[in-house]
Nucleic acid binder design. Structure first.
Length: 275
DNA sequence: GCCCAGGGATGCG
DNA sequence: CGCATCCATGGG
């Protein structure tokens, strides 16, 4: 699947790694398409992802971090095979996002980013997070780091309004005020449902945002964030009359179990870019 | 002008 | 618990 070189990671199995699909599947907001590579940011780290002939090269100064970030030790062709065996009706959706992988991202950045994402669109979300990086982060040369938690705690409501966060600005201040780094790390030991109840206590984190944090930070597989796009998929493939997102989520997790988070990304990517 | 975007907080029963 | 209403902002 991959080889570690001196200053980059070489991906040689492109049947389960497509950087365009990974970045456009809506799980990451901090990245930029440059002339001949992608600049991928996570917290205070960065990687340059270059497509070459039959390989993709990930240039970074922190190879171990991005091996984990891109989940390179997992074999997604195994996941895809299991999905095809059990749910052959989704072969088209699976083929469409064949190169998607589940990113393991920066903790604080995800709490803030997913809170900003509520009732928002990806273009505006990216713009706000870029503003946070460039106006409260550290200049790292080629990019700006995501602000540290200490720095975030110094920011006021006005700052988040200037960042384009709209009415979420006051929620963000309350959320950030309540965040405690050690407590967030201790959450790793909690089971999905227990942790979700903890996350729901924070201002700005409801059921959907909690599910996104569970999968992008805490590596939970048995969550299925239901947004407007998943709602459309649900109406198309499951029940066209269902309007209760909670019932959709419960049924989807019950159906897909530990493949839920991955299939959710596939569904989202498919619905967003077809028809 | 309306509708939509990776929904959530609040209040009311 | 369920349910309705309101919420900034920019693009279509």
């Amino acid at each position: 699947m991959f080889k570690v070189k001196k200053d980059y990671i070489e991906i040689n199995d492109l049947s389960q790694f497509n950087i365009d699909q990974i970045l456009e599947s809506g799980q990451i907001f901090s990245y930029e398409k440059m002339r001949d590579y992608y600049l991928v940011l996570s917290g205070n780290k960065c990687a340059k992802v270059k497509k070459e002939n039959n390989v993709v090269k990930i240039f970074t100064s922190d190879i171990d971090y991005f091996i984990n970030f891109f989940d390179l030790k997992s074999d997604y062709n195994v996941y895809k095979k299991i999905i095809l065996e059990n749910f052959p009706q989704f072969v088209q959706i699976l083929n469409y996002g064949y190169g998607i992988r589940m990113l393991k991202q920066d903790m604080v950045e995800m709490f803030v980013s997913w809170a900003i994402s509520a009732n928002n669109n990806i273009k505006r979300i990216k713009k706000s997070i870029k503003y946070l990086r460039e106006n409260a982060g550290e200049n790292m040369g080629e990019f700006y780091s995501f602000p540290t938690l200490d720095k975030l705690k110094q920011l006021d409501e006005k700052f988040f309004i200037a960042a384009g966060c709209g009415y979420r600005a006051s929620q963000l201040v309350r959320l950030i005020d309540a965040l405690d780094f050690q407590k967030l790390k201790d959450y790793y030991y909690l089971e999905t449902s227990v942790l979700k109840n903890e996350l729901l206590k924070y201002c700005g984190i409801g059921s959907k945002v909690a599910d996104c944090i569970l999968m992008s930070v805490y590596d939970k597989k048995d969550v299925f964030p239901v947004d407007t796009w998943i709602e459309k998929v649900y109406h198309q493939y499951f029940n066209e009359n269902e309007k209760d997102r909670k019932k959709m989520r419960e049924n989807l997790v019950h159906t897909f179990q530990n493949l839920s988070a991955y299939i959710q990304q596939l569904f989202f990517y498919f619905k967003r870019f077809t028809n």
